[in-house]
Design a protein around this nucleic acid. Structure first.
Lengths: 132, 132
DNA sequence: GTAGCCGGTCACGTTGCGGTAACCGGCCTA
DNA sequence: TAGGCCGGTTACCGCAACGTGACCGGCTAC
């Protein structure tokens, strides 16, 4: 819970890739987290999310705007500035995202080790030719 | 068509299709709900879920078994009987599913009406251009 | 001039989830 | 002999999500 200007980063190699809960599209939950503290600009979001392309981020933000989860403000400046901020409805998702993260903290290790056990079993099974 | 006692039904036409929260694969959360009260058989699950095909249900159940969310018991009887039951880990998902349903009860209407407003705006042309 | 920044759009390729249809094998009944 | 029930498997297919690379317009700085 750092309160620095920097937001958390999202490592594509982290177990999030096996995270069994998804809210909206692939990046929606992370966008919600990014916007929790304050509004952010497009490029800022891209930097924080790390591996998302401009097109996919645009799609995600447009869908969230359509669903009333965030608002988009264009400032007629130079260079162009666009700010995204959570609406009240979008903020309600925070509880859900936190519930999901809490579940993951408590149970994701169990899930992943069960998966590893299963995969190991398959490997072992395929290693020897079935005989009778 | 008789339903199994106390099992919820899932209508494919209900707003669930716009439900922005997904746990595991498409049917995972509903399988968890189906198995909340007691173990169930394959065909029983198919009937309750309504529109799921055998292949997809098999895939879902295999993935959940792999992840340690449920256990699969084969009884060597006639006709063949297979029972699926939630594990302790699978039961932990119930809280999350309930949290998602609670969010939906409170906010899904707002989301859907925001979406309808947006779609209507598109139909009527682009309306007014946002200016600042 | 030309290079870069910002916030995108456009055309296109790939991947994988979800779904359909056909089939299977053992047991039972008509 | 035929068909039904149970719990699947296999082959195939469509489509939307996801991602890549090129480009854009207005402005500024070098």
């Amino acid at each position: 819970m750092e309160k620095t200007a920097d937001a958390p980063t999202f490592d594509p190699a982290c177990p999030m890739s096996a995270f069994p809960i998804q809210i909206g599209d692939k990046w929606t939950a992370m966008v919600v987290l990014c916007l929790e503290g304050r509004p952010r600009r497009f490029t800022e979001l891209r930097q924080i999310l790390g591996s998302v392309s401009a097109k996919v981020l645009t799609d995600t933000l447009r869908a969230m705007e359509r669903d009333g989860l965030l608002s988009r403000s264009v400032f007629d400046e130079n260079p162009p500035r666009v700010e995204y901020r959570l609406t009240a409805l979008g903020r309600t998702l925070l509880q859900l995202v936190e519930a999901a993260r809490s579940w993951a903290r408590d149970n994701l290790d169990d899930l992943l080790s069960a998966r590893r056990r299963h995969d190991a079993m398959l490997l072992h099974g395929h290693g020897s030719v079935a005989r009778r």
